[in-house]
């Protein structure tokens, strides 16, 4: 089942509920992409990015990619596509002085549209709340372009804040003087992070991550800690526990099933780690969130 809404300004919202599909050589406007259950696999260049609930992916305009869903149950996806004009206008409105915007309200500089790092971002905070509203409005009977654009504007605003925190701030934490070297190193660390997110429920070895990121183990380990303030192993544990938390709240899987799904071997060690991290046992967490 597919649904698409094209707004008057050509921004688009696209949703799908499907269990088996393989799209190749797609290329669209700048887009924000997420799933609400299951996962969707994207191929961008030589990168394989698996999107799970709790994350979203950014794809720039013109990037060519493949995407695939292969699931027992239909996977619910949502994508928001922004036109270049909207992106440029948004950037102009948040970076220009009030005086300029008052004096010359309709001129948007003809600079290239912003280009973002195509990586997996955490879906949290206001972005998460606003996307939930977008999803509700999109699937409702209400057809209100102006309201939808209000949401889309805020969603972009929320994304800029996440981008600032996840990319601009973190890249500056790398102790590298040369800016080009720092950018390249940060890109590779992000590749490693994407690899861990995409394969969080598999048995991942440090050498696999380093190979994917094209970094030596010691170099990777040191720089990863500088950037993400935890070791790769701790990062992977956090991913698994966060996914478990999401499943406890949003699915009816038994705890032992969740333990298998997130790639843990032992139920008791999972319960102990979950309690250490969130201050509550998985069972009690489910009870309190269900109430």
């Amino acid at each position: 089942m597919k649904k698409i809404q094209i707004l008057n300004n050509q921004n688009k919202i696209y949703s799908e509920a499907i269990d088996l599909v393989n799209y190749t050589n797609e290329s669209h406007e700048f887009s924000i992409r997420m799933v609400f259950n299951g996962n969707e696999l994207y191929n961008i260049g030589n990168k394989e990015l698996n999107i799970f609930p709790g994350n979203f992916l950014i794809i720039n305009e013109g990037t060519i990619y493949n995407r695939k869903i292969n699931s027992e149950l239909p996977v619910n996806t949502l994508s928001i596509l922004y036109t270049n004009q909207f992106l440029k206008s948004f950037r102009h409105s948040v970076t220009s002085s009030d005086r300029l915007l008052l004096d010359d309200p309709f001129t948007v500089p003809n600079n290239p549209a912003p280009v973002f790092l195509e990586t997996i971002y955490p879906l949290k905070g206001d972005m998460m709340f606003n996307l939930a509203h977008i999803r509700n409005l999109f699937h409702s009977e209400i057809n209100n372009d102006l309201l939808m654009n209000e949401y889309l504007y805020h969603c972009l605003f929320n994304f800029y804040r996440i981008y600032y925190k996840e990319i601009l701030v973190k890249s500056k934490q790398l102790n590298v003087v040369n800016i080009n070297t720092r950018n390249e190193l940060f890109k590779r660390l992000n590749n490693a992070k994407d690899y861990m997110i995409s394969n969080y429920n598999q048995e991942i070895q440090l050498e696999d991550i380093c190979k994917y990121a094209c970094l030596s183990e010691t170099h990777f380990y040191r720089c990863f800690k500088q950037t993400f303030h935890c070791s790769p192993h701790q990062y992977l544990m956090q991913l698994r526990l966060s996914q478990a938390k999401y499943m406890l709240k949003n699915t009816s899987y038994e705890v032992r099933e969740i333990v298998n799904l997130i790639g843990f071997d032992c139920v008791s060690s999972f319960i102990r780690l979950f309690k250490d991290r969130f201050g509550v046992t998985p069972g009690n967490y489910r009870l309190t969130t269900a109430a």
Partner: peptide, 8 residues
């Protein structure tokens, strides 16, 4: 439960 909707 929805500030943007009400604002709009």
């Amino acid at each position: 439960d929805n500030c943007l909707r009400d604002y709009h």
